[in-house]
């Protein structure tokens, strides 16, 4: 049995190491954002807020933050609405072309972003709507709708199958049952889906970079700074982006968890 115990500890140590690898870049990015050295290493330089000040005083960053916010909130709204409608269709109806239907919805995340970026760029140019904030929103909605669909579909599968029929039985037509029963039941998943799709959109850079034109988002600014040279401003912006994304993710998680606890 001692063998087994050694193996166990070895595995735990290994797991810890893997987590260190995964979180090291996030951790160092935050640390470096407060570090005075232009090229940080150990030992660390002095504590400073100058990178944050630089970013704070940069009107481009503010403009990009506004664009990013618009894009991610609009994307989250569209993707969640599309995802909800699709999840409900999958939940309620069966039809002959359903595998194709679901494929159409769920496929986008399997296409490399760079290909999507090129395809969107060319297609929007063809339709004459390239280089607008709207182009980013459309592209991001295509990309994130599958996530919304998955989250809401999961919630629907937890629903008592007679709940909707019970509403009809009590005199609700399909629309009222949707508004009064299905939507309230899915509310936690809808909120989660909204936060998560917003977070994904807020971080996406490849498509934004290709289709944004002059309307840069925060990740596009990061990409441009990184391409230029080493500039710890990136860490400051990155930490800010991380904070926003994490807040959204944690809200999403908490909403889902508390609801589940309450129902059990």
């Amino acid at each position: 049995m001692t063998d087994n115990r050694t193996l166990r500890w070895f595995l735990f140590a290994y797991l810890a190491l893997v987590f260190v690898f995964i979180f090291a870049p996030i951790f160092f990015s935050v640390v470096f954002s407060f570090n005075s050295d232009r090229f940080p290493t150990i030992p660390l330089g002095n504590f400073t807020l100058k990178w944050y000040q630089t970013v704070w005083n940069d009107p481009d960053v503010w403009e990009a933050a506004r664009t990013s916010l618009t894009v991610s909130l609009s994307t989250a709204t569209i993707a969640t609405a599309l995802g909800f409608a699709t999840a409900y269709t999958d939940y309620r109806y069966s039809f002959r072309l359903k595998p194709i239907y679901l494929g159409l919805v769920l496929l986008p995340p399997t296409i490399p972003l760079i290909i999507m970026a090129l395809a969107m760029l060319a297609w929007f140019a063809k339709l004459g709507i390239s280089g607008q904030v709207m182009s980013i929103i459309i592209a991001h909605s295509v990309l994130t709708a599958p996530f919304a669909m998955a989250i809401i579909r999961l919630r629907l599968s937890q629903m008592d199958p007679s709940l909707e029929a019970a509403a009809w039985n009590l005199g609700a037509n399909e629309w009222s049952a949707m508004r009064r029963v299905i939507v309230p039941f899915c509310r936690p998943a809808i909120i989660s889906s909204f936060c998560l799709t917003a977070a994904v959109s807020f971080d996406e850079f490849a498509i934004s970079w290709f289709v944004s034109g002059l309307n840069k988002t925060i990740p596009v600014i990061i990409l441009e700074i990184v391409t230029g040279n080493i500039d710890p401003q990136v860490n400051a912006i990155g930490s800010f982006v991380f904070l926003v994304s994490m807040t959204l993710v944690i809200i999403a998680q908490v909403v889902l968890m508390t609801r589940r606890k309450k129902e059990n």
């Binding site: 160092f28 990015s29 290493t41 850079f205 990740p219 990184v226 860490n235 993710v249």
Partner: peptide
């Protein structure tokens, strides 16, 4: 493990760039 999906991949790569550099961490 889900958290990293929602953090900027670009920033993480930049962070690696600094960590792995010849005079890096």
């Amino acid at each position: 493990l889900i958290i990293p999906f929602f953090t900027s991949y670009l920033v993480r790569i930049f962070s690696w760039y600094v960590i792995l550099a010849e005079s890096g961490v």
